[in-house]
Protein backbone atom coordinates (compact mmCIF):
# COMPACT_ATOMS: atom_id res chain seq x y z
CA UNK A 1 0.00 0.00 0.00
CA UNK A 2 1.80 3.11 -1.20
CA UNK A 3 1.33 6.38 0.64
CA UNK A 4 0.99 8.44 -2.52
CA UNK A 5 -1.99 6.48 -3.88
CA UNK A 6 -4.78 8.59 -5.36
CA UNK A 7 -7.30 6.21 -3.85
CA UNK A 8 -6.56 4.05 -0.83
CA UNK A 9 -9.06 1.67 0.72
CA UNK A 10 -8.35 0.12 4.11
CA UNK A 11 -10.33 -2.70 5.67
CA UNK A 12 -13.56 -1.80 3.91
CA UNK A 13 -16.63 -3.70 5.11
CA UNK A 14 -19.96 -3.03 3.46
CA UNK A 15 -23.15 -4.72 2.35
CA UNK A 16 -26.90 -4.66 2.33
CA UNK A 17 -28.64 -5.35 5.60
CA UNK A 18 -26.87 -7.35 8.26
CA UNK A 19 -24.68 -9.62 6.13
CA UNK A 20 -21.64 -7.88 4.68
CA UNK A 21 -20.86 -8.36 1.00
CA UNK A 22 -17.36 -6.91 1.29
CA UNK A 23 -15.04 -8.35 3.92
CA UNK A 24 -12.13 -6.09 4.83
CA UNK A 25 -11.12 -4.93 1.36
CA UNK A 26 -7.71 -3.30 0.93
CA UNK A 27 -7.04 -1.57 -2.32
CA UNK A 28 -4.69 1.04 -3.66
CA UNK A 29 -4.93 2.96 -6.92
CA UNK A 30 -1.82 4.98 -7.88
CA UNK A 31 -2.38 8.23 -9.78
CA UNK A 32 -2.43 7.77 -13.54
CA UNK A 33 -3.00 4.03 -13.33
CA UNK A 34 -5.74 1.88 -14.74
CA UNK A 35 -6.71 -0.71 -12.18
CA UNK A 36 -9.11 -3.49 -13.10
CA UNK A 37 -11.13 -5.28 -10.45
CA UNK A 38 -12.17 -8.62 -11.86
CA UNK A 39 -14.04 -11.56 -10.48
CA UNK A 40 -17.08 -13.74 -10.96
CA UNK A 41 -20.65 -12.58 -10.66
CA UNK A 42 -21.41 -11.91 -7.01
CA UNK A 43 -17.81 -11.29 -6.01
CA UNK A 44 -18.82 -7.86 -4.70
CA UNK A 45 -17.39 -5.71 -7.48
CA UNK A 46 -20.41 -3.49 -7.96
CA UNK A 47 -20.88 -3.24 -4.20
CA UNK A 48 -17.28 -2.06 -3.95
CA UNK A 49 -17.85 0.72 -6.47
CA UNK A 50 -21.13 1.75 -4.88
CA UNK A 51 -19.41 2.00 -1.52
CA UNK A 52 -16.53 4.01 -2.97
CA UNK A 53 -18.94 6.51 -4.50
CA UNK A 54 -20.94 6.85 -1.31
CA UNK A 55 -24.13 5.19 -2.55
CA UNK A 56 -23.64 2.59 0.14
CA UNK A 57 -22.39 3.36 3.64
CA UNK A 58 -19.48 1.21 4.75
CA UNK A 59 -19.87 -0.63 8.05
CA UNK A 60 -16.16 -0.31 8.70
CA UNK A 61 -12.97 0.75 7.01
CA UNK A 62 -11.61 3.88 5.40
CA UNK A 63 -11.73 5.33 1.92
CA UNK A 64 -9.07 7.94 1.30
CA UNK A 65 -9.06 10.01 -1.89
CA UNK A 66 -5.89 12.02 -2.39
CA UNK A 67 -5.26 12.13 1.34
CA UNK A 68 -8.80 13.05 2.31
CA UNK A 69 -10.97 10.64 4.25
CA UNK A 70 -14.30 10.40 2.42
CA UNK A 71 -16.25 9.26 5.46
CA UNK A 72 -19.33 11.44 5.87
CA UNK A 73 -18.87 13.23 2.55
CA UNK A 74 -22.30 13.20 0.85
CA UNK A 75 -22.59 11.50 -2.54
CA UNK A 76 -23.35 14.74 -4.37
CA UNK A 77 -20.13 16.26 -3.02
CA UNK A 78 -17.84 13.48 -4.25
CA UNK A 79 -17.93 14.71 -7.84
CA UNK A 80 -16.49 17.99 -6.54
CA UNK A 81 -13.58 16.01 -5.04
CA UNK A 82 -12.74 14.69 -8.51
CA UNK A 83 -14.47 11.33 -8.31
CA UNK A 84 -16.77 10.25 -11.15
CA UNK A 85 -18.79 7.05 -11.05
CA UNK A 86 -20.27 5.60 -14.23
CA UNK A 87 -22.73 3.10 -12.80
CA UNK A 88 -23.63 -0.32 -14.09
CA UNK A 89 -26.22 -0.06 -16.85
CA UNK A 90 -24.52 3.25 -17.60
CA UNK A 91 -27.01 5.59 -15.99
CA UNK A 92 -27.87 7.54 -19.12
CA UNK A 93 -31.01 9.54 -18.38
CA UNK A 94 -33.29 8.26 -21.13
CA UNK A 95 -35.73 11.15 -20.91
CA UNK A 96 -33.04 13.77 -21.47
CA UNK A 97 -31.28 14.55 -24.73
CA UNK A 98 -27.66 13.67 -25.37
CA UNK A 99 -26.73 17.31 -24.94
CA UNK A 100 -28.65 17.61 -21.66
CA UNK A 101 -27.05 14.44 -20.31
CA UNK A 102 -23.62 15.80 -21.10
CA UNK A 103 -24.31 19.25 -19.68
CA UNK A 104 -25.57 17.60 -16.50
CA UNK A 105 -22.05 16.26 -16.01
CA UNK A 106 -20.65 19.78 -15.76
CA UNK A 107 -23.44 21.64 -13.94
CA UNK A 108 -21.70 21.46 -10.58
CA UNK A 109 -18.62 23.22 -11.90
CA UNK A 110 -17.99 26.85 -11.06
CA UNK A 111 -15.68 27.32 -14.02
CA UNK A 112 -18.40 27.61 -16.66
CA UNK A 113 -15.94 28.35 -19.44
CA UNK A 114 -13.96 25.19 -18.78
CA UNK A 115 -17.15 23.13 -18.45
CA UNK A 116 -18.12 24.35 -21.94
CA UNK A 117 -14.64 23.50 -23.20
CA UNK A 118 -14.86 20.03 -21.68
CA UNK A 119 -18.23 19.54 -23.38
CA UNK A 120 -16.72 20.43 -26.75
CA UNK A 121 -13.86 18.04 -26.15
CA UNK A 122 -16.27 15.21 -25.41
CA UNK A 123 -18.13 15.91 -28.64
CA UNK A 124 -14.82 15.75 -30.49
CA UNK A 125 -13.88 12.56 -28.70
CA UNK A 126 -17.22 10.87 -29.41
CA UNK A 127 -18.21 11.86 -32.88
CA UNK A 128 -21.48 9.81 -32.86
CA UNK A 129 -22.70 11.86 -29.89
CA UNK A 130 -22.11 15.11 -31.74
CA UNK A 131 -24.35 13.87 -34.54
CA UNK A 132 -27.10 12.92 -32.10
CA UNK A 133 -27.05 15.92 -29.79
CA UNK A 134 -30.83 16.38 -29.83
CA UNK A 135 -31.72 12.70 -29.56
CA UNK A 136 -33.12 11.39 -26.32
CA UNK A 137 -30.94 9.08 -24.25
CA UNK A 138 -33.21 6.09 -24.75
CA UNK A 139 -32.93 6.40 -28.52
CA UNK A 140 -29.24 5.58 -28.46
CA UNK A 141 -27.60 2.22 -29.09
CA UNK A 142 -25.81 0.43 -26.27
CA UNK A 143 -22.41 1.59 -27.47
CA UNK A 144 -23.59 5.18 -27.80
CA UNK A 145 -25.00 5.05 -24.29
CA UNK A 146 -21.67 3.90 -22.95
CA UNK A 147 -19.99 6.76 -24.80
CA UNK A 148 -22.55 9.17 -23.37
CA UNK A 149 -22.10 7.94 -19.80
CA UNK A 150 -18.34 8.07 -20.15
CA UNK A 151 -18.43 11.46 -21.87
CA UNK A 152 -20.72 12.84 -19.18
CA UNK A 153 -18.23 11.79 -16.51
CA UNK A 154 -15.40 13.40 -18.49
CA UNK A 155 -17.21 16.75 -18.70
CA UNK A 156 -16.54 17.00 -14.96
CA UNK A 157 -12.80 16.51 -15.60
CA UNK A 158 -12.49 13.83 -12.90
CA UNK A 159 -9.23 12.71 -11.39
CA UNK A 160 -10.58 9.25 -10.63
CA UNK A 161 -13.06 7.49 -12.87
CA UNK A 162 -15.00 4.54 -11.46
CA UNK A 163 -16.38 2.39 -14.27
CA UNK A 164 -18.84 -0.40 -13.58
CA UNK A 165 -18.92 -3.05 -16.31
CA UNK A 166 -18.38 -0.78 -19.30
CA UNK A 167 -18.38 -3.82 -21.60
CA UNK A 168 -21.80 -5.08 -20.47
CA UNK A 169 -23.98 -5.91 -23.45
CA UNK A 170 -21.63 -4.39 -26.00
CA UNK A 171 -20.19 -5.91 -29.16
CA UNK A 172 -16.51 -6.94 -28.86
CA UNK A 173 -15.43 -4.28 -31.32
CA UNK A 174 -17.12 -1.55 -29.28
CA UNK A 175 -15.57 -2.92 -26.09
CA UNK A 176 -12.15 -2.79 -27.70
CA UNK A 177 -12.74 0.82 -28.77
CA UNK A 178 -13.77 1.86 -25.28
CA UNK A 179 -10.81 0.13 -23.66
CA UNK A 180 -8.45 1.77 -26.16
CA UNK A 181 -10.04 5.11 -25.38
CA UNK A 182 -9.46 4.65 -21.64
CA UNK A 183 -5.79 4.06 -22.32
CA UNK A 184 -5.61 7.11 -24.55
CA UNK A 185 -7.28 9.29 -21.92
CA UNK A 186 -4.91 8.02 -19.27
CA UNK A 187 -1.90 8.76 -21.46
CA UNK A 188 -3.07 12.21 -22.57
CA UNK A 189 -4.75 13.59 -19.43
CA UNK A 190 -3.36 11.50 -16.59
CA UNK A 191 -6.83 10.19 -15.78
CA UNK A 192 -6.88 7.47 -13.14
CA UNK A 193 -9.34 4.64 -13.73
CA UNK A 194 -10.76 1.99 -11.44
CA UNK A 195 -12.58 -0.45 -13.64
CA UNK A 196 -14.82 -3.27 -12.56
CA UNK A 197 -15.32 -5.99 -15.14
CA UNK A 198 -16.61 -9.46 -15.71
CA UNK A 199 -14.96 -9.35 -19.11
CA UNK A 200 -11.61 -10.34 -17.62
CA UNK A 201 -9.62 -10.56 -20.84
CA UNK A 202 -10.39 -7.10 -22.10
CA UNK A 203 -10.12 -5.57 -18.63
CA UNK A 204 -6.70 -7.05 -17.97
CA UNK A 205 -5.56 -6.14 -21.46
CA UNK A 206 -6.13 -2.45 -20.80
CA UNK A 207 -5.23 -2.30 -17.11
CA UNK A 208 -1.86 -1.72 -15.51
CA UNK A 209 -2.85 -3.57 -12.38
CA UNK A 210 -5.40 -6.22 -11.67
CA UNK A 211 -7.29 -7.01 -8.50
CA UNK A 212 -9.08 -10.33 -8.29
CA UNK A 213 -12.11 -10.50 -6.04
CA UNK A 214 -13.95 -13.60 -4.89
CA UNK A 215 -16.84 -13.74 -2.44
CA UNK A 216 -16.22 -10.24 -1.16
CA UNK A 217 -12.49 -10.55 -0.61
CA UNK A 218 -9.43 -9.51 -2.56
CA UNK A 219 -7.69 -12.77 -3.37
CA UNK A 220 -4.93 -11.38 -5.59
CA UNK A 221 -3.52 -8.02 -6.57
CA UNK A 222 -0.71 -7.83 -9.08
CA UNK A 223 0.36 -6.22 -12.33
CA UNK A 224 -2.26 -7.05 -14.95
CA UNK A 225 0.20 -8.84 -17.19
CA UNK A 226 1.13 -11.23 -14.38
CA UNK A 227 -2.52 -12.02 -13.63
CA UNK A 228 -3.12 -12.68 -17.32
CA UNK A 229 -0.31 -15.20 -17.38
CA UNK A 230 -1.04 -16.91 -14.07
CA UNK A 231 -2.90 -20.02 -15.19
CA UNK A 232 -3.67 -21.29 -11.68
CA UNK A 233 -5.24 -18.01 -10.63
CA UNK A 234 -7.24 -17.76 -13.81
CA UNK A 235 -8.57 -21.26 -13.45
CA UNK A 236 -9.34 -20.84 -9.77
CA UNK A 237 -11.12 -17.50 -9.77
CA UNK A 238 -11.78 -16.32 -13.28
CA UNK A 239 -12.98 -19.47 -14.99
CA UNK A 240 -10.96 -19.45 -18.17
Amino acid sequence: MSADALLAVHGLVAGYGAAPVLHAIDLSVPPGAIVAVVGANGAGKTTLLRTLSGMLRPAAGRIVLDGEDLRGVPVEQLVRRGLAHVPEGRGVVGELTVDENLRLGGLWRRDRADAARALDEVYQLFEPLARRRRHLGHQLSGGERQMLALGRALVGRPRLLLLDEPSLGLAPLVVAQIMALLRRLRDSTGLTVLLVEQNVRSALSVADQGVVMALGRVVAAAPAARLRDDDDLRHAYLGF
Partner: peptide, 15 residues
Protein backbone atom coordinates in the same frame (compact mmCIF):
# COMPACT_ATOMS: atom_id res chain seq x y z
CA UNK B 1 -35.71 17.04 -14.46
CA UNK B 2 -32.63 14.88 -13.98
CA UNK B 3 -33.34 14.51 -10.26
CA UNK B 4 -36.89 13.42 -11.06
CA UNK B 5 -36.00 10.94 -13.79
CA UNK B 6 -32.82 9.46 -12.31
CA UNK B 7 -32.24 10.45 -8.68
CA UNK B 8 -29.31 8.13 -8.07
CA UNK B 9 -27.39 9.09 -11.20
CA UNK B 10 -28.13 12.75 -10.51
CA UNK B 11 -26.57 12.53 -7.06
CA UNK B 12 -23.47 10.97 -8.59
CA UNK B 13 -23.31 13.99 -10.89
CA UNK B 14 -23.44 16.39 -7.97
CA UNK B 15 -27.14 17.28 -8.06
Amino acid sequence: RAAAFAPEVSRLLGV
